[in-house]
């Protein structure tokens, strides 16, 4: 089932047309890696597809409904977004912050229940922060803060998850753990789009790889068909792709 469907999506910021008519479908049970050079429009696409960014044209359907017909709360119950910058300002505790992910599902005044607390705790454990509940988010390292933002999105328990460079501040072990986590969410039938720069993580974990360059989407028919030429064309530099003894492929930028 297609969870998120983007048609003819255009975004113009100032005088620049950042996205020039994007068509994209996200079915459940898939992790889609979104790659592209700086300024290619990855964050703009994530924001517009998730209903938090500006849209100059085109439509976004979430679970069959036009996103413009849904309230903000309804949208936040269907799609969760992990932003590139966590931007924590106030000294909320880690637990309080993750519980904010439960607000869209809770009523305005409804007390957060034990279920909510358990969901938040489970989300924290998924990102290896189970013991961080009482710490203040303003005291965390960049990588810890990024994992809190991921946990907050997980606590929303949405069918669609959009992540904007979620592992940019994470050490290799935690980055791998996040992608294994995305894999298990996929197995639960969720749809995941993750913007990132690490081509090797994409090659290893993504079901589909889509490239964005100058506001236009390019998707090879299969991730197996991503080769040195494709990477060179997207990133304007030389690449070497090697197949490892494990069968995985690894990409190295040469220049």
């Amino acid at each position: 089932m297609v969870l998120l469907s983007v048609r003819g999506l255009k975004v113009t910021l100032g005088s620049k047309e950042v996205l020039k008519g994007i068509d994209m479908d996200l079915p459940g049970g898939e992790v889609v890696a979104l790659l592209g050079p700086n300024g290619s429009g990855k964050s703009t696409l994530i924001a517009a597809a998730g209903g938090v960014g500006r849209r100059s044209g085109g439509s976004v359907d979430l679970l069959g409904d036009d996103i413009d017909t849904l309230s903000r709360r309804q949208v936040a119950r269907r799609v969760a977004i992990v932003p590139q910058q966590t931007g924590f300002l106030m000294p909320f505790t880690v637990m309080e912050t993750v519980l904010m992910g439960r607000f869209p599902a809770a009523g305005r005044f409804a007390r957060l229940s034990n279920d909510d607390e358990q969901a938040a705790m489970a989300a924290l454990e998924m990102v290896d922060l189970g013991s961080f509940g009482e710490r203040l988010v303003t005291d965390l390292s960049g990588g810890e803060a990024q994992r809190v933002a991921i946990a907050r999105a997980l606590a929303q328990e949405t069918p669609v998850l959009l992540l904007d460079e979620p592992v940019s501040a994470l050490d290799p072990r935690h980055a791998m753990a996040v992608f294994r986590l995305l894999g298990s969410l996929k197995n639960e039938g969720k749809g995941v789009i993750v913007a990132l720069h690490d081509i090797n993580l994409a090659l290893r974990f993504a079901d589909r790889i889509v490239f964005l360059k100058e506001g236009v989407l390019y998707e090879p028919p299969s991730p197996r068909l991503v080769d040195e030429k494709v990477l060179a064309r997207i990133f304007d530099n030389q690449w070497r792709l090697e197949t490892l003894s494990s069968g995985d492929r690894a990409a190295f930028p040469l220049a």
Binding site: R72, T86, P104, R152
Partner: peptide
């Protein structure tokens, strides 16, 4: 006030 994008958490 937390610094999150309020819309992504359902806040108008």
């Amino acid at each position: 006030s937390s610094g999150a994008n309020p819309r992504s958490l359902g806040v108008d």
